[in-house]
Simulated scan of single mutants.
Amino acid sequence: MKKHYVLPQPAYAHYVCYPEMLGHYTDFPQHAERRSEGFLGSYNLHMVFGGEGYVFQEGERISMKRGSGFLFPRGAYQQYGSDPGQAWNVRWVHFATALSLPMLEEADHSRGYFFTFDPGTGYEPVFEEMYRLSATYETRSEPRLSTLLYEILVTLMQNSEPLHGSVPLEIRHSIRLTADRIHSECERPWTLEAMARLAGYSSYHFLRLFRSIMGKTPNRYLSDCRMARAKLLLVSTELSVAQIALQCGFHQSSYFIKVFRQLEGLPPNQYRRLFSS
């Protein structure tokens, strides 16, 4: 199968990112590209969901299997293709962007970013919607195409690692599952030890991994989750401040009010008056 779409320049010139060309190749062992320096004026993202392929970088042949991919910056020399004996299942997109993302910056700096990702993180339905909109292109689809591409890039930022990264994807996945559990049960009396035990790591190791992957400490993440729930309950219910405190993991309303004021700059009742309708 060979899906290949080329989009016209968007009518609106200020999208933060926009696909120029995209496709999906399976059972296409002839797929191979070799582009000279300066030939392609857009970013080129390939993600492998099955089979095998390869990419060359500085004379080194890098194997590409399920869960691996590459991102070339604008104007970079490119050489890659499918394994003739086991054709890859690859989804790809050429795109323009004004975004400043670490992944894009790394590609610009090194002239090629090679990574691993979790194929089960939901990329394929997003690509499929992009293909559908591209096949029946209308100008009114442009905002959605830009949004879908942005979703792929940001999801990839959160769920990928450099090909020789220090944090394997299965560890990243387990930390995010733990974070989701903490978020959904933020009223529980979580301790660092309890959170680490849930993830299956020592407290020290969990703290280091969580900060690296989530960008904040577990306790700060827990506090942010509790504040988000508290603000929602304040503006959407008539529960008392004491009841909301209990539902957000605070057993003393006075402490809840103190923490809320420290983080939000005003007490809960004032927040409710300002933001509830």
Rank of each mutant, 00 (worst) to 15 (best):
R211D: 10
Y221I: 01
L209H: 02
R226C: 07
I62S: 02
L274K: 14
E37Q: 15
H251F: 12
S240L: 04
L133Q: 05
M103P: 01
V154M: 13
C248P: 02
R61C: 10
S36E: 15
C248N: 04
P19T: 03
L263N: 13
H173C: 12
A135G: 07
Q57M: 08
P168C: 09
L148M: 12
T26V: 15
C186E: 04
R211H: 11
F210W: 00
G59S: 11
I62P: 00
P143I: 08
G85H: 07
M157I: 11
G41R: 15
S100E: 15
R61D: 07
F256K: 07
E106W: 06
L233H: 02
F49T: 05
F115N: 02
R74H: 13
F49Y: 12
H205W: 07
I175E: 05
L104S: 04
E129P: 00
V16H: 03
R261D: 13
R188H: 07
P19E: 02
G81Y: 05
K231G: 04
Y255Q: 13
T97H: 02
Y5P: 07
G59P: 11
S63E: 13
D27F: 14
E60T: 15
E129G: 02
T155D: 13
Y123T: 04
N219W: 01
G81A: 09
Y80T: 06
V90Q: 09
E151C: 07
Q243W: 11
F256S: 08
A230I: 06
G51P: 06
L7N: 03
F49L: 11
E37S: 12
Y123E: 05
H164N: 15
R211N: 12
G85K: 07
M21E: 14
T191H: 02
T26E: 14
G215S: 07
Y137W: 06
T97P: 00
G112L: 02
L40T: 14
A242D: 14
M195C: 02
A199P: 11
E193H: 03
G165E: 09
V167K: 01
C17V: 06
R35Q: 14
E52G: 11
Q243V: 12
G38A: 09
R220L: 08
R220S: 07
Q262L: 12
D108C: 03
F115Y: 11
N219R: 09
R111C: 10
G38Q: 13
S134N: 07
F95I: 08
E124T: 15
L274M: 14
C248S: 10
L239V: 10
Y123N: 05
R61T: 12
G53L: 04
S202V: 00
R61L: 11
G23L: 02
R91C: 11
P218L: 06
G249I: 09
T121P: 01
D118F: 03
H205K: 12
R197T: 05
I171V: 15
R144E: 08
T237Y: 06
E105R: 12
E33G: 10
E187S: 15
V6C: 06
P29F: 03
F114P: 00
